[in-house]
Amino acid sequence: TSTSTSTTTSTTTTTSTTTTSNQNPPSGAATGYASQNGGTTGGRGGATVRATSGTQIHQALCGRAGSSTPITIEVEGTINHGNTTKVSGESCSTAAGVIELKQISNVTIIGVGSGAVFDQLGIHIRDSRNIIIRNVTIRNVKKSGSPTSNGGDAIGMESGVRNVWVDHTTLLASGGESEGYDGLFDMKDDTQYVTLSYSTLRNSGRGGLVGSSESDRSNGFVTYHHNLYQNIDSRTPLLRGGIGHMYNNHYLDIHESGINSRAGARAKVENNYFKDVHDALGTFYTSEAGYWQVSGNTFDNVTWSTPGSDTNPAGPDVKSTTTVSIPYAYTLDQTTCVP
């Protein structure tokens, strides 16, 4: 909570389309940091199975020859607590009331047919690598109340996770922590090489974090591109240490703070469109500074707090405080096209 005053700015920086390589990855291939560290291919080259319940998802994981045997799981229908039970096997470590991707690799979960909805049921990725999640909706996952799942995170990653691509997903809540929800897209405890693309994050107190505390700085190399953050209080995302790359995202109706780079984090923020946002970028709620490199962003009806001991907004005169080198190919869309 802050009692400082605010000013309003409406600043538009126009930019032409910028290409940093000859071409982007082909359709269906991981982009951003998920394309690094050997790449993210999920279940490519393995069997394809269909699942209409959480139990069937777990059965598909447990039925593999080994924990690293590639598999693509096509999901259709509503996945909830009533149809998600624990399944045992040598190639899996599952649990009831959550989609558990633990100590496994080379898995794709993709929504097909009439759609895949994970209702009040989160996806937990722990000590795993090479995971793809695409074309699904995850909604109303709670950490308190009933039923609870995944600590209130729609998608949560922790403990040595590597190479995850989440694409064309819809992550929804119906309020903040006081209503029982936590983050929509959280990473902690040594999670690296992750991309979130073409997704919608909406109606939540917390968009997501990288690092669970100021000392949890082993995470990073995360790309966020072509996502919509709408009606979110804060954490779009919160970065504690590491590197984040945000480009061509639309931030709409952000109430408290947007991109919160702190505890030594470095954010490259390019060609994003911020509208009706408070404190779009900066270091907030801590004295441990983070840094940012900015270009081509539009700030439309953005308000900024007055700087203080634990508040360092990037605006209203938004300037870079670091430089970040990006190792992969990407193309920037014009900022005016982002909404």
Rank of each mutant, 00 (worst) to 15 (best):
P26L: 09
A60E: 15
T303P: 13
S174G: 06
K268N: 06
T31A: 11
N271T: 00
I99C: 07
G82S: 14
A289E: 14
G82L: 07
G183C: 06
T1R: 11
G308T: 14
S149M: 08
H124W: 14
E100G: 02
L172N: 00
I232K: 02
S93E: 02
G205R: 01
R129P: 00
A265M: 01
V318E: 09
T108S: 04
G175N: 12
D233F: 01
N83Q: 09
N301P: 03
L201N: 15
G151F: 04
H58F: 02
S114K: 12
I109T: 06
T11D: 06
Y273C: 06
V302P: 13
Q56M: 08
T19D: 01
Y193R: 13
V324C: 10
T8H: 11
G46S: 15
G113A: 13
D189C: 05
Y193D: 04
D186G: 08
Q23C: 08
T191Q: 10
I99Q: 05
V222G: 05
I133S: 00
N227T: 07
K275M: 10
D310F: 11
N249T: 04
Y181R: 12
Q120P: 07
A51N: 03
N22S: 08
T321M: 04
V136G: 05
N272Q: 08
P26G: 09
N301T: 07
T195Y: 09
L196P: 00
N203L: 02
H58Y: 04
G151H: 03
N249S: 03
T286F: 09
S218P: 10
T78Y: 13
S68G: 10
A314G: 13
I104P: 03
G207I: 02
R129Y: 08
T12E: 14
L252Q: 07
S309Q: 15
L238P: 12
T18E: 00
V166Y: 11
R162I: 10
I254M: 01
I110L: 08
N249K: 03
G220Y: 00
T84R: 06
G32Y: 00
S257P: 01
N24L: 04
G113L: 10
R262N: 12
N80C: 06
P313F: 11
Q230S: 05
Q293C: 05
L238E: 15
S21C: 13
T48R: 09
G115M: 05
R50E: 12
F284L: 08
S93C: 04
V136W: 01
S91F: 13
A267L: 11
T78M: 13
N249C: 05
V112L: 01
S320D: 10
V164N: 09
P313T: 09
K275T: 15
L209P: 02
G211L: 14
V294F: 00
F185P: 01
G175T: 13
D167R: 12
D310S: 14
Y273V: 07
T321E: 07
K142A: 11
N249H: 05
Q192Y: 11
I79R: 00
S320R: 07
V112S: 07
I110H: 13
V210L: 08
T55Y: 06
V136S: 06
K86T: 09
C62M: 02
T331K: 06
S204G: 14
A30P: 01
H255R: 12
V161S: 15
S91W: 11
N312F: 05
V112A: 07
G43C: 11
N248D: 09
Q56Y: 07
P307S: 06
